[in-house]
């Protein structure tokens, strides 16, 4: 059963089509979504997750989004939240466990330990109590990744997990992604750095308002396909 299966998905921004007739089955393992700016990469993730309106059919693990909610993790773009919010790194990660919290919001100890473990996994255990506003950009991204991990999902959708992070954080995040794949999880990540695609990912979706190509990186990530996806200017 494909972790995510999209059939004839269309998204419009006003009159303009942002995504046209997307049909795509996500294979287990690590998958990159690549394409130029405005290709609809983030839009595809958000539409699949029901965060923006779309037409077409989206199935997660062969069932509906509502039925599969607990098995899906999401890492939004870092700029999408208020980093001045009064919360520690641990508080943010613990929010992934909100469905399991008591009514007043105090976390049971087991949930708190799970959040701590997720922070440790991204190398942030020492900064658990630090206010999120005092973290560097790379550290904030790690906190976001930890929150995504704490969801204990089988499919993780990530919107640019490696955007604007330092080299150390990038290595750390890639390590986490690969560990997820070896433990049977699937990851779909919007990715910008074409050079690193073959090193990190097994599968790729090449997107430009429509599906240009999808499949194993070895098969679809070819100079000709890259030219088709990005236009002639980028065929380096």
């Amino acid at each position: 059963m494909a972790p995510l299966s999209i059939n004839h998905l269309n998204v419009f921004y006003g009159e303009t089509p942002a995504l046209a007739d997307i049909c795509w089955d996500v294979a287990p393992g690590l998958t990159a979504i690549i394409g130029p700016n405005g290709a609809g990469k983030s839009t595809l993730l958000k539409a699949a997750l029901g965060l923006i309106p779309s037409t077409g059919e989206v199935r997660f693990f062969g069932t509906t989004l509502d039925a599969a909610r607990a098995r899906i993790g999401y890492l939004p773009q870092r700029a999408s939240v208020d980093w001045d919010f009064p919360a520690s790194a641990l508080d943010v990660v613990a929010m992934a466990r909100t469905p399991r919290t008591r009514w007043w919001g105090a976390l049971p100890r087991r949930e708190r330990e799970a959040a701590r473990a997720a922070l440790a996994e991204v190398g942030m255990a020492a900064l658990a109590e630090r206010p999120i506003g005092q973290l560097s950009g790379g550290q904030q991204q790690r906190v976001f990744l930890a929150r995504c991990l704490a969801q204990e999902a089988d499919l993780l959708l990530m919107d640019e997990p490696l955007a604007a992070v330092d080299a150390a954080t990038e290595r750390e995040i890639i390590k986490v992604l690969q560990k997820l794949a070896t433990t049977g999880r699937s990851v779909v990540a919007v990715h910008h750095d074409l050079a690193s695609v073959p090193d990190i990912f097994e599968h790729a979706l090449m997107l430009n308002g429509r599906v240009v190509a999808a499949g194993r990186v070895a098969d679809v990530f070819t100079p000709a396909m890259i030219t088709t996806t990005y236009g002639a200017g980028l065929a380096a």
Binding site: L51, P76, S80, V81, D82, V92, P99
Partner: peptide, 23 residues
């Protein structure tokens, strides 16, 4: 506000993420 505390917190910090969790 006390009864809705976890929900209001999730809404104010990251509404999309909260929606995804079924809020």
């Amino acid at each position: 506000t006390v009864a809705l505390f976890p929900r209001l917190r999730a809404l104010c910090f990251d509404a999309e993420f909260a929606a995804l969790q079924g809020l």
